[in-house]
């Protein structure tokens, strides 16, 4: 195995150093880059997902003037890979940086392998 299943909808091909969608296998870009750059983004008002249950200023829905809901989709299969609630203009979070060199070194040293489930398994 060379594909590590690092998030619910993301694999890293450790040999090829590429991100892939776990569901449709779409190539999402270089593994040393932010995987989100290979995704589509949609901005939504939080009330589209969290309905305003009562009238007034405080409604059970996050206030769209304070935060926006960002949805990140796989361009291949439309899977919602990530979501993030951010104030408008707030830097988008680069949430996952996997150290590819370290994984390669551990596999080469026989310390670890990528098992049948796509998980890093310590063998020593």
């Amino acid at each position: 195995m060379t594909k590590l299943h690092v998030a619910e909808y993301l694999d890293i091909d450790v040999e090829a150093e590429r991100w892939h969608c776990h569901d449709c296998d779409r190539d999402l870009g270089p593994a040393r880059e932010n995987y989100k750059r290979g995704l589509l983004v949609a901005e939504r008002d939080p009330s589209e997902v969290h309905p305003k249950v009562i009238e007034g200023e405080y409604t059970f829905s996050p206030n769209g003037d304070w935060v926006r809901l960002l949805e990140f989709y796989c361009p291949g299969c439309g899977r919602q890979v990530e979501t993030e609630y951010l104030p408008a203009g707030h830097p988008l979070t680069r949430d996952t940086d996997i150290d590819i060199d370290s994984i390669k070194a551990r596999i080469a040293a026989g310390e670890a392998r990528i098992n049948e489930e796509g998980k890093l398994e310590v063998t020593l």
Binding site: Y9, V49, H50, T59, F60, P62, V81, E82, T83, Y85
Partner: peptide, 13 residues
């Protein structure tokens, strides 16, 4: 923040 494409809970008035 939610995880892997989920949503968070509603706010609490």
């Amino acid at each position: 923040q939610p995880l892997f494409g989920g949503y968070s809970q509603p706010t609490v008035p």
